[in-house]
Design a protein around this nucleic acid. Structure first.
Length: 630
RNA sequence: GGCGGUGUAGCUCAGUCGGUCAGAGCAUACGGCUCAUAUCCGUAGAGUCGCUGGUUCGAGUCCAGCCACCGCCA
């Protein structure tokens, strides 16, 4: 396949809880990747997680697990979200993988061999009461910006990258390639910044150890950006000049949020220059989302959970909203009111209803069979124009414009229905030919619309394709051409693709979200009923993985006087067997035994679903095994 | 403080080289149709184009100053 297209999202910090911003970047990159695949490009779409650093190390220590175990557990938050959002990435890179570590160390050695890495001293400040590290820039009149107290100065040995050496080359590149940074306003900011002069960059730390060791000096770990940015190379198989690497590097576009613009447009290109590697063709920085007009923040509690939005509105409507509501590159505002507005006006009324009315008429007037007739005419010209314009907008990653064009077409098709009034034609037998032609044209228009929306709303497009009886492989560049490929197809009336959301039923209940109201609806029980549960404390003595199961662990639990029992638990995604030995847990002992994967389980270990996976119920003071819980 | 951006109908915003550019979508009102998810199609609003000057035969569209908000840097 020719015409390679390599697109990336940033790697997300694994310890973060995914929010609308993560979803936005990833959905946008996904739509671009899907579009290019439809157009016949060989696409490589990469996302992943950044798993090193002090924060992960600290969280892991607090939870008493290894940093890697913590990362293994929380990485699933991203992986699960991408699944429900139908993200079509070709690879998922984690910075803790061996392939990445090798790539980073090789890059380091290459740059060092060039004489661009030297050992120096890095100064920063530490505010002991706040337990935070501060840079000289963050200080306010020499004081901690948070508490106003005097921080302590720390000096630390550090390796530096000679970024200053690349100032002129970078500036020349920025000026010669106006498309390198998009949107343009961001490009201007970076040019200003680079003109202000580039300093050498500290790229190692000795104050924590959770990272990739500096080659030849194990006391240092490679600091965040030198490690993280390299993911774009390591996923392609760098340093081995594999076919993949040869095909896809340099990247066509790094899609990022504006918070990490400088790292991608100053640090990254200079690293690559030092390694004599070609620079990515474009870095596209999109905007931030506010929520109901306010900045998102944990303290305000207004952080939008993408998973919840998907549950409430569906993956496709949420994807559609993100890409349609705001020009890509500018800030935008999310509100459920706007979400519902888009859903009803654009998806239910315009698109969904169009499918509904046209397929109904086909059933009524043509017996559900697409007439075989000439379809060249007004509509074909409109469709061809729309396909052309969508292509132009997608080339610029102007998703909202592309969607505007698609909806202009949908409106045009709705207008065509009114103007040709098939229901009037159907009353006059003499106009049969005319009616057949109109219906065939309308169906063909629906087919092309299905292809056009598929990068944005893959599930809906698949559903529509099945209504139209399209065969596998329908989503191709050739398919975008107006033709007669539906002729003689037998088609049933479409079910509403997007049932309207009525004002009073909004927001729809989120079925799996536990909340106070949900808890109250559970029937009450009396004490006797509770006492039927034989809940006891237990201590895990043995634990091993169950062959061929990703979820199950076989445990041997000590129940004191009641002896030991074998219990199979679905906790392997979160707990390693070795972490469990000696752990106190709560066991339901009189659960009817059951066989899981052929292994008998004589009870149940209690656990609860947290935001980042299961958590076993424990005791907050030591209690001997076998005690009854009441 | 330095550099840059934005300020156009109730809301969100288009307006490329100065002269049908005073516009689109949503919302609202009225009309039409009945195939359709009470959906669709059509029509309407009069908004000092932030303020004040200036250039020009003519300025949202260029220039200067001011006000407000935002971004990057310090």
């Amino acid at each position: 396949m020719s015409d390679p297209f390599y697109i990336t999202t940033p790697i997300y910090y694994v310890n973060d809880v995914p929010h609308i911003g993560h979803a936005y970047t990833t959905v946008a990159a996904d739509a671009a990747a899907r579009y290019r695949r439809m157009m016949g490009s060989a696409v490589f779409f990469l996302t992943g997680t950044d798993e090193h650093g002090q924060k992960v190390e600290k969280s892991a220590a607090q939870q008493g697990v290894s940093p890697k175990a913590l990362a293994d557990r929380v990485v699933t938050r991203f992986q699960k979200l991408w699944k429900v959002l139908n993200i079509s990435h070709d690879d998922f890179i984690r910075t803790t993988e061996a392939r990445h570590q090798e790539a980073v160390q090789t890059l380091w050695r290459t740059v060092a061999a060039k004489g661009d890495i030297y050992l120096g001293e890095y100064e920063d400040w530490y505010c002991t009461p706040c337990e935070t590290f501060l840079t000289a820039l963050q200080l306010q009149e020499g004081k901690c910006p948070d508490c106003g107290r005097e921080p302590e100065q720390l000096k630390e040995e550090s390796y530096f990258f000679r970024m200053s050496r690349y100032e002129e080359r970078l500036l020349a590149h920025l000026e010669a390639h106006p498309e390198f940074i998009q949107p343009e306003s961001r490009r201007n900011e970076i040019i200003q910044f680079v003109r202000g002069g580039l300093k050498d960059l500290s790229i190692s730390r000795t104050t924590f150890s959770w990272g990739i060791p500096v080659p030849g000096n194990d006391r240092h770990v490679i600091y965040v950006w030198f490690d993280a940015l390299t993911n774009y190379l390591s996923a392609l198989g760098y340093p081995d000049r594999t076919e993949h690497f040869g095909t896809f590097w340099p990247a066509d576009v790094h899609v990022i949020g504006k918070d990490i613009l400088r790292f991608h447009t100053v640090y990254w290109p200079t690293f690559l220059m030092a390694a004599d590697l070609p620079l990515p063709r474009q870095v596209f920085s999109h905007g931030w989302w506010t929520v109901d007009g306010e900045k998102m923040s944990k303290s305000k509690g207004n952080v939008v959970d993408p998973g919840e939005m998907v549950q409430r509105y569906g993956a496709d409507p949420f994807r559609y909203f993100l890409l349609r509501e705001v020009p890509f590159g500018l800030d935008g505002d999310f509100s459920e009111k706007a979400m519902v507005g888009r859903f009803n006006a654009d998806l239910a009324n315009d698109l969904g209803n169009l499918f509904s009315r046209v397929t109904t008429m086909l059933g009524k007037y043509c017996d559900g069979t697409v007439p075989r007739t000439d379809t060249s005419g007004q509509l074909s010209a409109q469709v061809e124009r729309a396909v052309q314009r969508v292509d132009e907008e997608m080339a610029r990653l102007a998703f909202h414009k592309a969607l505007q064009e698609i909806w202009a077409l949908i409106n045009g098709i709705n207008r065509h229905v009114d103007q040709t009034a098939p229901w009037a034609l159907a009353r006059q037998a003499s106009r049969r030919t005319e009616l057949d032609r109109v219906m065939a044209e309308l169906m063909e228009a629906l087919r092309v619309v299905t292809l056009l929306i598929s990068p944005f709303m893959p599930q809906t497009a698949a559903e529509a394709a099945s209504v139209l009886g399209l065969e596998a492989g329908w989503s191709t560049r050739a398919g975008l051409q107006w033709g007669t490929s539906l002729a003689s197809a037998k088609i049933a009336k479409a079910k509403p693709l997007f049932p309207r959301i009525e004002a009073d039923e909004r927001p729809r209940p989120a079925p799996k979200q536990p909340n106070a109201a949900g808890a109250k609806q559970v029937a009450q029980i009396n004490l006797q009923e509770f006492q039927r549960l034989d809940l006891r404390t237990g201590v895990i003595r043995e634990a091993e993985a169950v062959a061929k199961s990703e979820r199950l662990l076989k445990l041997r639990v000590d129940l004191g006087e009641a002896g030991r029992r074998q219990v199979v638990a679905g906790i392997a995604a979160v707990y390693r067997p070795s972490d469990l030995i000696g752990k106190s847990v709560v066991v339901l002992c009189n659960l009817k035994p059951a066989k899981l994967m052929g292994i008998e389980s004589q009870g149940m270990v209690l656990a609860v679903e947290g935001d980042d996976g299961l958590s076993l119920l424990g005791l907050d003071r030591p209690v001997p095994p076998g005690r009854k819980i009441h």
